[in-house]
Design a protein around this nucleic acid. Structure first.
Lengths: 171, 171
DNA sequence: ATAGTTTAAGCAGTATACTACGTTTTGCAA
DNA sequence: TTGCAAAACGTAGTATACTGCTTAAACTAT
């Protein structure tokens, strides 16, 4: 099954040399990043298939795990998603009893989000699985390559932060 | 507006040193990749806001642009999405008259996808905008850094290809 | 030849990730 | 103080990206 067709991977790679910049998919940084993002989602899902949790869901819970409380927008931006996506994730986590949504006494527009005891336990259970997914993702790299990758990714994110439709830490 | 709050970006970064591997969002490669993916989507959307097209849509059309025909699964895997997501994208591109879906004469289960003249024109119009989005994304990097980033991303994608839920070129 | 497997698609359901628009509350300034 | 801008949230709509189930056609092996 795995050998049935010629590898499109190899095919795309070989063509890449003789073409103009960005002409082939394989030469588009955006394409490479999207593929790696999908791979990470796959690895994470595989590690956490018993708990049925996603990277963004775990990201939110791990932000709240220390017991801090915050409104939906602050929570959303702190994990790098927009307000509406964040509210969606929060809704699902609330349904599973992993966090609470309460009206703020100070600002009656806001909803204050806090983790539940079940949420704390959940984070502790899932944390090693998350770490395994991260480790598998970067397992093919040497220490030096990993350090370089992280440095370059951080540089790109910092420089382009405003370009994202969910900029981190500015609204 | 941009200065209103303390930068969560900077905050997260500073905390990162004194914590265990992967403990903080900022130290999770998967998180960095997701953020950069979002940034690319934002840059692409900004460049192509007149044409209302996404990277995956453009990817499909640019694969077809030379006039080749293929079934939905082959097309989907060649741009790195699964069969169902691909069919969804194809449906929308067909609705806009940029490609055609015809039943195969040889295999009556299959739908043969081919680009239309409007599709070809569309690709030519959008290609420079796609290239600008790619260029902006990696603009903060030196030539050497870009080369290293691409090398590492390709290495990770090749090594982890099967881990993706839409592996490229194997089915 | 036919029975069983595989393959290409379709359909339903779910999660992330947005835009656009509307509502209520807050806060500032004339 | 009132009047208006901004903020927090909600709702609706759209696109990507899957899983799981089903149907119909094609293939394979006996």
């Amino acid at each position: 099954m795995k050998e049935k067709k010629e590898s499109a991977l190899q095919e795309t790679k070989n063509k890449s040399l003789k073409n103009r910049k960005f002409r082939e998919l394989w030469n588009r940084p955006g394409y490479l990043i999207r593929r790696l993002h999908q791979i990470h989602l796959g690895l994470f899902a595989e590690e956490c298939r018993d708990e049925d949790v996603t990277p963004v869901q775990f990201g939110m819970l791990s932000v709240l795990a220390s017991g801090v409380e915050m409104d939906q927008l602050t929570l959303s931006t702190s994990v790098g998603v927009d307000r509406v996506s964040g509210a969606d994730v929060i809704k699902r986590l609330e349904r599973r009893g992993l966090l609470q949504r309460n009206r703020s006494e100070i600002d009656r527009r806001a909803r204050v989000i806090s983790i539940t005891p079940q949420g704390v336990e959940f984070v502790e259970n899932v944390r090693p699985k998350m770490a395994r997914a991260q480790a598998k993702l970067v397992a093919p790299l040497t220490e030096a390559e990993l350090a370089e990758l992280e440095r370059i990714l951080k540089k790109l994110i910092e420089a382009n932060n405003d370009a994202s439709r969910a900029p981190l830490g500015v609204n």
